[in-house]
Nucleic acid binder design. Structure first.
Lengths: 352, 352
DNA sequence: CTGAAAGCGCTAACAA
DNA sequence: TTGTTAGCGCTTTCAG
């Protein structure tokens, strides 16, 4: 069923039908109602392509994610998608499987398809490619730590601050030797966490050598492998207690922390008494681990929601041919979730 | 940059440019190369809408999911999306947040946008609405248990069989009283699991009353609440050991099992010695719980991949104006993952 | 308030 | 092999 057939059925011209669809106020009430009735009856919906061809607007956004699993990405995605749906937009899911080539392929594809906007989550694209995107004049927002791109609109959690607080907390717990397992992705977030950690370590006069920080894959397996290595590095020669020189492990994501917990247990050690472990993110499961994982909560869903809102602001700005505004940067506060795994002595009961 | 400008630059007609795009074999090599060079230079890509208007094909599919979090949905989604990407398609993410109204809204939207196909995950739509979709003649595939819709193409795991095996395993472990926490979503899957459970319980002469089966929300919280209730129901009057009459809990999803584990621990009980717990799904975290969770593995990613393949078969069939084939039903085998939480006595060491 | 007609960018049938 | 032209379905300007 197309507009012509509706017009014929109603005994009017296509223009009039088009008007009741787009500017109903310009149609005589009687005609309008008559036409509307036929539209409803026939369940007519205007052809998407023909419309797009005229408006050159898709009401579609692209969301590029590093991965489908790993709870945090999809929580952000949920926030983005919710806002998009409420705005009458629909979201292309572009999962890059942590492969930058797929990421590029997807972005090219999105631009070809004339999406109205793009959200890049924890993107790891080159400067060159980023400026190419910029030239395409397509509204875009970055979600996730991105200190290196001040010229892009972005949303992130204040990970540096979170890491500072967490490291300080570990120090307060009385831990002397604190190691860090630093996930290689999302790169920039881990870097901020690392900085926060290093600053506090130095400020509080803790030892800090290359042994303290390991780069690991941002996954459960990565955490497991990294923790094993770290434990063996921190074992006194001849000691039969593995990791006897290590007090605590700070993992740059909860996923890594899960793996680290497993490794510590496998060594026959007790968390937090032998080695304390803390994470970053507060994934849904962290409260169910044994012991419950102390971590820094990032407001993932909110990050998605804010990111989407900025994007739609940009889109609307562009539609109105407004000036390009200066990039907005939203930084959301993190929250300490003190549970059992950090070994906090005094207030442990009240802060689960 | 549009086809006209390319044509002018190359000194040919638009038709020739269109040909090098769609039927390059019909263009003289020399002209073809000349035009191609200009196309590359200008980074010209044909207007998506104009193309669609002619082909009436979007190379887009819609994927309707119950939820973004909860690992299993997104694992399936990852499989679907991967196949779609390889086929040059792109996927609309439609997260219905467990609200059937949003689900309908999304499906209408997808149809309006003329997607080439739709995948419904664990859908809970009415018969009436389903037959409306059918009338739209849009290729569609169901993923997830769906015994009630033999006339739709579908992919599922053999949950009934999985539940049979798991229940038998619990019986073999020596458990007498086995309760079931049955998630209300995805409805049909839980039903199949329930049936498998009941059959084995009856066949092996176990007690089976209304106390044995609780409907709970399919979430960690649901599992927690359900387990608490079940434990108190199965406590002898006057006993100071909660749940002393209960040997094991079979949860219809790993998520529910997580909550149940938490509840059992909160009661001061030991898993599996006091109460054994098993789940269904084998989510990524199940191997990290303490104790590690015995469960039935569903091949989620594979379900997505197969679902997508069926969908593309349907799409290609439709393009060729082929006959509508009879619906295909793919049933994938599940796999027992015997770990510690079931309390299996003999082979426990070898089967983690 | 309504209709006729041009045009959005592209494809494909038909002609040359 | 290439060009001309009629649409695809809709919106919108311009007349009436």
């Amino acid at each position: 069923m197309n507009i012509k057939q509706i017009a014929k059925k109603a005994g009017v011209s296509v223009a009039t039908v088009s008007r009741v669809l787009n500017h109903p106020e310009n149609v005589a009430p009687a005609t309008r109602e008559r036409i509307q009735k036929i539209i409803d009856q026939e369940e007519y919906t205007p052809n998407w392509f023909a419309r797009g061809l005229n408006f050159n607007k898709t009401r579609t956004i692209g969301l590029v994610t590093p991965h489908t699993v790993g709870s945090c990405y999809m929580e952000i995605a949920g926030g983005v998608e919710e806002v998009a749906r409420q705005k009458g937009y629909i979201t292309f899911m572009c999962n890059m499987e942590r492969d930058p080539d797929i990421e590029k392929e997807y972005i090219n594809h999105l631009i070809t398809r004339k999406v109205d906007g793009i959200i890049l989550m924890y993107s790891s694209l080159s400067d060159e490619y980023m400026s190419w995107i910029r030239e395409e004049k397509i509204p875009a927002v970055l979600i996730g730590e991105n200190e290196l791109r001040p010229d892009w609109d972005s949303v992130k959690a204040d990970c540096r601050d979170g890491a500072v607080k967490m490291t300080a907390h570990l120090v307060e717990c009385g831990h002397e030797t604190i190691g860090m397992l630093c996930g290689n992705a999302p790169e920039n977030e881990a870097n901020s966490i690392l900085q926060g950690y290093k600053n506090v370590m130095k400020a509080s006069g803790k030892k800090l050598s290359s042994k303290n920080v390991y780069d690991v894959e941002n996954s459960i397996e990565g955490g497991y492998i990294g923790a094993k290595r770290m434990i063996s590095e921190f074992t006194s020669p001849g000691s039969d207690v593995p990791g006897d020189q290590l007090d605590a492990i700070f993992a740059s994501s909860d996923e890594i922390a899960y793996g680290a917990m497993d490794a510590v247990k496998d060594c026959g050690l007790c968390i937090p008494d032998d080695i304390a472990i803390v994470g970053f993110g507060n994934y849904k499961m962290s409260n169910l681990m044994e012991p419950k994982l102390t971590t820094v909560e990032e407001p993932y869903r909110l990050m998605g929601i804010y990111g989407a809102r900025i994007l739609f602001d940009l889109i609307e700005e562009k539609e109105k041919n407004g000036e390009e505004s200066t990039p907005k940067h939203i930084i959301l506060k993190t929250k300490m979730r003190i549970r059992k795994s950090c070994g906090h002595k005094e207030r442990i009961g009240e802060m689960f």
